[in-house]
Design a protein around this nucleic acid. Structure first.
Lengths: 331, 331
DNA sequence: TCTTGACAGGAAACCGGTTTCCGAGTACAC
DNA sequence: GTGTACTCGGAAACCGGTTTCCTGTCAAGA
């Protein structure tokens, strides 16, 4: 049987209130008794039950982290950041992998309520009304990452996606490209979908390039979307000399797709991605891309959650810096 | 204030025992009363506190997953597998990222004890005595993945690393290579370190090739280890025509390192990796490698944990199949 | 010497569930 | 009509902590 606070109290000849006080330094205890209690605790290797403690304190020291896909490096880096910051402050992570399914998102929100997590970090793929409503009902400190919920008052940790995309496409245009295609994300995604597309449009406009529907392809951020999209676009537009992809995975798919058509990157066509995942730097050719600080975003989100939990004002800067990393895939 | 079982009991005019019975179907309740209780529950959107439940049932429905690095695709795929199986059975994942540090491993084991998880899935990088001892003290259902703990009686989910490495190197030797280098893992790692090296030796022996110390380089599974290792080996052994790397990351580093020296893969040298991570298939050249089913291993581990928790015999097959995937990096 | 206040520590309530134990009511057999 | 068995539901104990409230002791001040 497990050692409980009652056992310790009996063995030390004190009440369990005293044991609790020694454990938490919540009220002064004479040095003599404190030592006796500590001795017994050490001898028995007693470890208080966090479940019991949570019941009275109403705190679980658990942060629910809801993301679409753990095995996507974009999200796993965020998790890593969250974890490192959480760990520093004795919080733990309840991992919720929604697999891009709204149903699972909703189910996990129920679970998070049930588990009484102290806070929620949400990277929702389906930022739907249902999600928003459920989140409100849970009524816990919440931070969003790369997600926009309508009429929301939750802090959002993000980068300026539109500006970043603008810079990427501007770089292509400034290098002399004028037939610039884009493999963009789905329209229902306000961040990686819409915002990056807007940046693309703005950059074209800045260089007085007409937006051409034929140079657009919609993907879902998957490798094969890039592969197929690039092949389709280049067949329809042989004069296309540059391609901006809404994420690195599609960009690498695009490179592979073009190589398989016998083309050369960047000699025949320049490719630029978004996110700067690890592969981007080591792919051959290495990928020019927009780098965003995933780990830092995770840490940042966690710090905001801590502020919210402790009812402190949120001093954290929510908009992180991005950076254009020029590598071999463009010229 | 939160709605509790007491509120429901009062509103429905029954005792809280009855509410509990309706909730859990633990004892028959007349249809009339059941309906009344269910109505109240629905109206109030009552959700029982899992913390309180855990305190009495001694079950938290939490599985502690301790791994060295979430952002490494090898581990995140395992996690994905664990999650999908856990989710099916209403278990949740407490994520523990040890960052390859023994200190953090030990700290997390304390946390897992404190949190009273129902089971532990451990992928330890430092399978030390301390870890082993602490694990024993926690005394919870435990499964190891890709980890060997001395004198342990925990089930180990794994592949036959030695055989897999043997097959990889045999493939090279059978293709006519006789100067085959290896970038292996550290010696303290019984699985990815020792076992894969043994397979290499065995394959050489099968082809009566003398083991040559000069063709060996020790890395820590990082990209740069492969990069530097490959460059060093080829400079020392210009006659080397094939290189086996203990994981894909080092293999890709190796390719990059050799390309940067002006060499061609596979024309000048064949490279073979291990793990078949996503990049392996899309890298240019794509990587010949040993594929192992990470997701399946994760699922498998979770199923074993479930069996252990439910005191059922473990029927799961613990040794998974690997497969040699021949791609462009070898000839 | 008596009062007052500070302080250490114990008893008990409480958190929100589950489960045991028991009693009331009903049905059936004799 | 009485004894018996069975069903349903309530009271209360319990899980292992925290916290409030109270009591006893001792030192300082009047």
């Amino acid at each position: 049987m497990r050692v409980t606070i009652n056992d310790i109290a009996k063995m030390a000849g004190v009440s369990k209130a005293t044991v609790s006080r020694v454990l938490n330094d919540s009220k002064p205890v004479s040095e003599e008794i404190r030592q006796k209690v500590l001795d017994v605790i050490e001898k028995t290797e007693y470890q208080p039950s966090s479940v019991a403690r949570s019941l009275t304190t109403r705190k679980t020291k658990l942060i629910g982290v809801l993301i679409p896909d753990v095995s996507n490096p974009v999200f796993s880096k965020i998790i890593e950041g969250i974890e490192s910051e959480a760990n520093k402050h004795d919080y733990n992570i309840l991992l919720c992998n929604s697999r891009y399914s709204e149903e699972k998102e909703l189910k996990y929100l129920d679970i998070l309520k049930d588990k009484e997590v102290d806070g929620i970090i949400l990277n929702s793929y389906h930022a739907s009304d249902k999600v928003s409503k459920k989140l409100k009902a849970i009524d816990k400190p919440t931070v969003l990452i790369g997600t926009q919920l309508d009429q929301t008052m939750y802090p959002i940790v993000r980068i300026d996606n539109e500006k970043a995309a603008y810079e990427a496409v501007l770089f292509l245009a400034s290098s002399g490209h004028c037939k610039i295609g884009m493999i963009h994300g789905p329209k229902h995604d306000p961040i990686a979908g819409i915002a990056r597309f807007k940046g693309y449009c703005a950059a074209l406009e800045a260089h007085e390039i007409q937006l051409d529907e034929n140079l657009l392809y919609e993907g879902h951020f998957k490798l094969m979307d890039g592969y197929e999209g690039a092949q389709k676009l280049i067949k329809m537009n042989p004069e296309m000399t540059a391609l901006f992809c809404a994420n690195d995975e599609m960009a690498i798919g695009a490179i592979k797709g073009l190589i398989d058509l016998g083309m050369h990157v960047p000699d025949d066509i320049s490719i630029i991605g978004f996110d700067n995942i690890d592969i981007a730097g080591i792919y051959a050719p290495s990928l020019t891309t927009i780098s965003q600080p995933f780990r830092e975003k995770g840490k940042s989100a966690m710090r905001v959650i801590l502020s919210l939990i402790n009812m402190e004002p949120v001093s954290e800067n929510l908009v992180h810096d991005h950076e254009l990393i020029v590598r071999e895939s463009t010229k």
